[in-house]
Design a binder for these strands. Structure first.
Lengths: 232, 232
DNA sequence: CGTATGCTTGAACGTTTTCAAAGTGAGTGG
DNA sequence: CCACTCACTTTGAAAACGTTCAAGCATACG
């Protein structure tokens, strides 16, 4: 097995504090695989056999019910997913698919649980990770329940601008249809919402957004760290 | 300090596995307080000074933004809340208020973090708790994004019936206005939605619900363990 | 070029909220 | 014991919001 990816995995908060011995044990049966775009990696309801780590590419977490489908989150390198299912040895609640060609590390769930049981440092790292994940879902739920779709979009754009280090214009990281689903609306509604933001200084050219008057947009969006801060 | 409540706290999954010594250390500065109904225990944005444990009564977790307010979850004895904020030493994302006269244990957050750092068993118990909490928020989000308000209500009623051990009729655990907020709708809309469920065998008399034809209601609700099972 | 895909637009429709008002019921004080 | 009050719930009508369906556009790709 090529071990080049060990370092990347080791670099994650989740694995950086544990002993070399336990880390090796964890990696013993782990492996890396390359996936083309649009591959469904896992399906909700399946038993959680592997903890997944996105090493490169982009992965969409989504959920289905009664013929509908909605995007729950998008994962970029380097991050893990379905940690909670792995820990509880419970079925996945979400499905995952690659959005681009992606390199994914797969760590057998039973190994994760075994090391978790004997390594306190690893257990503590998992706590930190889960607490963060929990808080980000709570924020997403507040976003959904307290804001209209226009307000959600406005805040999303402000967050994207922050990620682009405040640049006046930036590129949407994925298709608008997916963004719409992430924001809990239809593509048509997103299209109209983007137009509705024009009076607030939002210019759209394809996937390119520019925000000419951030203060004006903030007046509408009313961002708050208790919903919109990804670090908090 | 009376130590009668120690046993109740000790009985929680979260605290049952840790050593006596560490448990004592955790309880050293902890105390219990009685609150009347409608007291705001914590407010979102506040620093997380205490881990709270509901020993009796009922507590509502809610969130506010821009003049709106929404109910996020209701806690019954015996359970903890704001564990994630305590662990990360971050501000509360939700506010909490008593719905009834309640007995709440307060454990200083810094003590929780200190014991967490030295007690692997406690860290593992926290992981289990957080993973469960995470999964329940994910389910709530799927419920919100994939279902209409009528479908959410129908599934809620089926879950309540399960909690009542399948009894044909049961009582709603709190006011309809709060239920509406929990389900992400207005009281008016809930009122109409309950009427709309009459053809599916749902009879309403004040807070008393009876489900005369569960199969019929399930046909509309299409419950799934991946959203509606509280144990999974 | 032609075709596939995603995006936009328009119109109709359905759902949900808002506002206003009336009904209900529990608890209080006369 | 009754009348009053207050809070919650229900109802109705109108408006806002969001979805659906159908068609047209743009763009990228063979």
């Amino acid at each position: 097995m090529p071990d080049s990816f060990f370092e990347e995995v080791r670099g994650l908060h989740l694995f950086s504090e544990m002993s070399e011995e336990n880390f090796s044990a964890l990696m013993r049966a782990a492996y890396v695989q390359n996936f083309p775009p649009q591959i469904e990696l896992i399906s909700e309801g399946d038993p959680s056999d592997f903890l997944h780590v996105v090493l490169s590419g982009k992965v969409d977490l989504f959920a289905r019910w009664n013929g509908h489908e909605t995007s729950m989150a998008t994962l970029r390198p380097v991050s893990t997913f379905i940690l909670a299912a792995t820990i509880r040895d419970a079925p996945y609640l979400m499905s995952a698919r690659t959005l681009e060609k992606s390199r994914i590390a797969l760590i057998p769930s039973q190994d994760v649980r075994a090391i978790f049981d004997i390594d306190g440092d690893f257990a503590r790292a998992i706590v930190a990770e889960l607490a963060l994940a929990y808080r980000s879902v709570v924020k997403a739920q507040k976003d959904l329940k307290l804001r209209s779709s226009l307000e959600r979009l406005a805040n999303y754009l402000l967050r994207q601008q922050d990620r682009a280090h405040g640049a006046e214009d930036f590129t949407l990281p994925y298709e608008k249809r997916r963004l719409a689903s992430l924001l809990g609306m239809t593509p048509e509604n997103l299209s109209r919402a983007l137009k509705a933001l024009k009076p607030y200084g939002v210019l759209v050219d394809g996937n390119r957004i520019s925000i000419t008057d951030r203060a004006d947009l903030e007046g509408l969006a009313k961002p708050t760290p208790l919903i919109d801060d990804f670090l908090l």
